[in-house]
Amino acid sequence: MTQRRRIPLGIRATANLFRPMMRVAISKEWRGLDTLPERGFIAVTNHVSELDPFAVGLAVVSSGTTPHFLAKDSLFRIPVVGAALSRLQQVPVARSDRQAANQSLEVAQSALDRGGAILIYPEGTLTRDPELWPMRAKTGAARLALTTGAPLIPFVHWGVQDVLAPYAKLPKLLPRKKYILQVGEPIDISDLRSMPLTRTVLAEATQRIEAALTEGVAQLRGEQPPEHIWDRALNQRVPRNQIRARGGDEVSP
């Protein structure tokens, strides 16, 4: 994979548009951006607010890296929206058609080869945990990391949910909120990369992602995480060491 290249004008313009808005709402602290690899990487992050893409995306842009979010392929077929997503070099995700999924993987690999960052929310949606801890992840991020060989970097953050709580209609701008984002050590899945891409291997890699995100959020919150992890399918917490390879839950090619 090659080193990072200059961030495209469209992404820089979008970042410049949202940066002043975020500055009004939050007092930010970014930690560890200088530790990011020079080549393309996959960023996995916890999901606590609809503002997350803006908050995390701005940090990635500020590091000198082009962010590429995964988006449903159906969005790329919407007039204007699809064209904008394509110009901003975002990655379409196809869930059902194998050929389209392979094309999505090619797009993601191309972004990584250009030194960009693929940003993934492993949970697949805003956390349903009542206390906003990271919940059980899907296997898409693990699949992409094992398929491409790209470094897997945890981005944990906390505070933006105080501006816009999950599913809230209106933001709370006053008083100004504190926001912290922390880049963690690469998640070690080196022992899994040479193995066949079985459901068990995907489940093991996914559990390591869950652990990295939970530990990182615990550091930012200064709290101990719950002993169990929230499982959206069961609507309750389940043991963290219970590896369950579930079919049909991939969120990336």
Score class of each variant (00 low, 15 high):
Pro122Ile: 07
Pro122Arg: 01
Ile120Phe: 10
Glu106Met: 11
Glu123Leu: 05
Arg95Glu: 00
Lys72Gln: 07
Glu106Lys: 12
Lys72Pro: 08
Asp129Glu: 13
Gly116Thr: 03
Arg114Trp: 12
Pro79Met: 11
Thr127Asn: 04
Arg95Val: 04
Val91Lys: 00
Leu85Thr: 02
Val81Arg: 01
Trp133Val: 03
Ala117His: 11
Gly115Leu: 08
Ala117Phe: 14
Leu85Ile: 07
Asn102Glu: 09
Ala101Phe: 08
Tyr121Lys: 02
Arg114Val: 01
Leu119His: 04
Asp129Ser: 10
Arg98Lys: 14
Glu123Asn: 00
Val91Met: 05
Thr125Gln: 10
Leu85Cys: 09
Tyr121His: 05
Ala94Ser: 15
Trp133His: 02
Pro122Ser: 05
Ala84Ile: 05
Leu88Gln: 10
Arg95Pro: 06
Val107Thr: 15
Tyr121Asn: 06
Glu123Ala: 13
Ser96Glu: 15
Gln89Trp: 01
Thr125Arg: 03
Gly124Arg: 01
Gln89Thr: 05
Pro92Gly: 04
Asp129Pro: 03
Val93Ala: 07
Val81Pro: 00
Leu119Pro: 02
Val91Gly: 01
Leu112Lys: 06
Gln109Glu: 15
Ile78Gln: 12
Ala111Gly: 06
Gln99Lys: 13
Gln109His: 11
Pro79His: 13
Ser86Pro: 00
Asp97Glu: 07
Ser104Ile: 03
Leu105Tyr: 12
Ser96His: 15
Ala71Asp: 12
Ala101Arg: 10
Leu126Pro: 12
Ala101Tyr: 00
Pro122Asp: 08
Phe76Ile: 01
Ser104His: 02
Ala83Lys: 14
Ser110Ala: 15
Asp113His: 09
Val107Ser: 09
Trp133Asn: 06
Leu132Thr: 05
Asp113Leu: 12
Gly115Lys: 01
Pro130Leu: 12
Ala108Tyr: 08
Asp73His: 12
Ile78Phe: 11
Ser104Pro: 08
Ser96Pro: 05
Tyr121Leu: 02
Arg87Met: 14
Leu126Arg: 06
Leu126Ile: 14
Glu106Gly: 11
Gln90Glu: 05
Arg77Gln: 13
Ala108Trp: 02
Val81His: 08
Gly115Trp: 00
Ser86Cys: 07
Arg114Phe: 06
Ala84Asp: 03
Ser104Ala: 13
Gln90Met: 15
Ile118Trp: 02
Val107Gln: 08
Ile120Gln: 04
Gln89Ala: 08
Ser86Ile: 08
Arg77Ser: 12
Val91Gln: 00
Glu123Ile: 07
Gly82Lys: 03
Gln90Thr: 07
Ile120Glu: 11
Asp73Arg: 03
Gly116His: 02
Val91Ala: 01
